[in-house]
Write a protein that binds this DNA or RNA. Structure first.
Lengths: 325, 325
DNA sequence: TTGAAAGCGCTACCAT
DNA sequence: ATGGTAGCGCTTTCAA
């Protein structure tokens, strides 16, 4: 490993000088600078970030804590985060929490031990003062919380929009699929839809589900049509479930959207690949990732004038599982 | 920040002693140990990994370099890697290369600067000695290369299996979708299928595609049926394309698998959610991630007796886009 | 404009 | 069994 000392020796200067050209601060003569640059090139020197981090008590590392990268909503988010952060030279420490408090804690601790300068987290556990004790810039992802800077889209509004859309399009016997109870955004969507449904002149039923996983989505879809065979409108808890419902409806010989309309949530890329393509409520995942990263960066830089919380728009994406007009 | 000094003071011992109990080495009296433990608990001490890393010249960090986490094959892989590594206390530095050499280089450099102890990488650029100069345990992911430890599945075999399966099931006018030329595994699959196709009594055509992205998959599928409207068997370059082809075939009123059979590649979770469900050649992504992580770990620990390269099985998964004999 | 040296938090060697 | 201390590679005063 070639260190700053080697460069100093090669250039015939002191390490202090090398450090100065490295960081572009302090006075350093033009010819000295040139010598140092050359030495660095010759030796293929690249500074040891760990040593830097130790002295400065901060790194170019940022922690990203996600529930599960395997859920197709999150890769988009993660990509948005990474693309934005890497522009400024930051790198990502990744952790999957599985919505599990202990894992979350563990990751956060190791992130801190590694001197991350900021944290992006999609969590359900803020109340527990877990995050309060952290003296670290934090941006809540996907989920809004009290005084923390957050980037999210309003699940309540989105859920309401889904319900309203289905009602407008003539669904009379709606089935509302409720996501896992311990996941905040799922609850928000559910409540938003409930509010609208309750005030409208439609029958509706609720199907409770306990996970967001692919494997189980199929089971939920089967259950749905067994319990509510006559439903003519399904509000899915997310697109995966929506796609599973399409599958099951087709299997049962139902015509979409004539017999049953289906509306998803998230707008993951595969929505436009299903057949029929899935109408859904879009959350701009990639953009949310980007904005969250930007917000975090601005907080790190101490630009306190910036918006501390961003609500991203939800939007109905009309495809072919809902009736036109 | 509470440091080892604080603990030492609190416990009335030297930092050396604290370090010893921390690392469980050297002699330390039972009561001293107890005092130190208590002090650590009281102060909520947790060791600074950066300082450790600086001294020991190694960290508990591992670099994971992926082409694009947004491609549904990779989240599975990544999860496998993470689940295995986190068991041993390692954390992941993540980078997306977009199959781009420059990004790849940049990430690798920063990984090294951050003292990662190992690297997992899915790359097409080994020949360039990029990796040779790295004095770092490396495991190639998804793609096998000469002398590097690798975990992969044989694309050649998989491609051949896809072709053979389709032929066995009676397809006569096969369209082979060729993935991007610069992506090794895509080429391998293609060649494997070509070999089989060439030696069989079937007509076949090749459709070249240039990306693995969702947005473009739809376009390729449209193109496919325009150029080869009478094809009765499609070997897709991956499941995304496969699902897009299902979509397009249905849109054109074709009956699957009677009019046209389709076979995907990878076995991403959404295969069983499409309608009809997509028959495919399975690569065990999650398991590959796990095995790669284990292999890397064993190399790091210096267990040289272990297998240096693992070939994972490919397997035909029969679903509903191929005929039941 | 440059260099010497302290110190970031920790580990490991050498004393005792 | 315990403590003192050098040093990991770097940045940043403080002097010169």
């Amino acid at each position: 490993m070639v260190t700053i000392k080697d460069v100093a020796r090669e250039a015939g200067v002191s390490v202090a000088t090398v450090s100065r050209v490295l960081n572009n601060n302090g006075y350093v003569g033009v010819d000295t600078r040139k010598k140092v640059m050359e030495a660095m090139a010759v030796l293929e020197y690249s500074p040891n970030e760990v040593a830097r981090s130790l002295y400065k008590r901060e790194s170019k590392l940022i922690g990203l804590l996600l529930p599960d990268i395997t859920n197709p909503f999150f890769p988009q988010l993660a990509r948005g985060v990474e693309d934005e952060l890497s522009k400024s030279g930051y790198r990502l420490l990744l952790g999957n929490s599985d919505e599990n408090m202990d894992k979350e804690l563990e990751y956060i601790q190791t992130f801190v031990q590694n001197h991350v300068v900021g944290l992006l987290t999609a969590t359900n556990h803020v109340e527990d003062t877990l995050y309060d004790s952290l003296k670290l810039p934090i941006v809540m992802l996907d989920r809004a919380y009290g005084h923390y800077p957050s980037v999210y889209s309003d699940g309540r509004e989105g859920g309401g929009l889904a319900a309203k859309t289905l009602i407008d399009k003539g669904a009379k016997r709606i089935t509302l699929v409720k996501g896992p109870a311990h996941i905040r955004p799922a609850q928000d969507r559910f409540k938003g839809a409930m509010d609208v449904l309750s005030e409208a002149d439609v029958d509706f039923a609720v199907l409770a589900t306990t996970s967001y996983s692919f494997e189980e989505a199929k089971g939920f879809a089967e259950e749905l049509f067994i319990k509510y065979p006559n439903t003519d409108g399904v509000i899915a808890s997310n697109d995966i479930v929506g796609i599973a419902v399409i599958h099951q409806a087709l299997k049962l010989g139902k015509v979409i959207p004539d017999d049953v309309q289906i509306i998803g949530y998230d707008d993951i890329p595969q929505c436009s690949l299903s057949y029929p393509t899935l109408s859904t409520i879009r959350q701009p995942a990639y953009e949310m990732g980007r904005q969250a990263a930007r917000l975090l960066l601005s907080i790190i830089k101490g630009e306190s004038e910036c918006e501390r919380t961003m609500q991203m728009p939800v939007e109905f994406i009309e495809r072919n599982t809902t009736r036109k007009e």
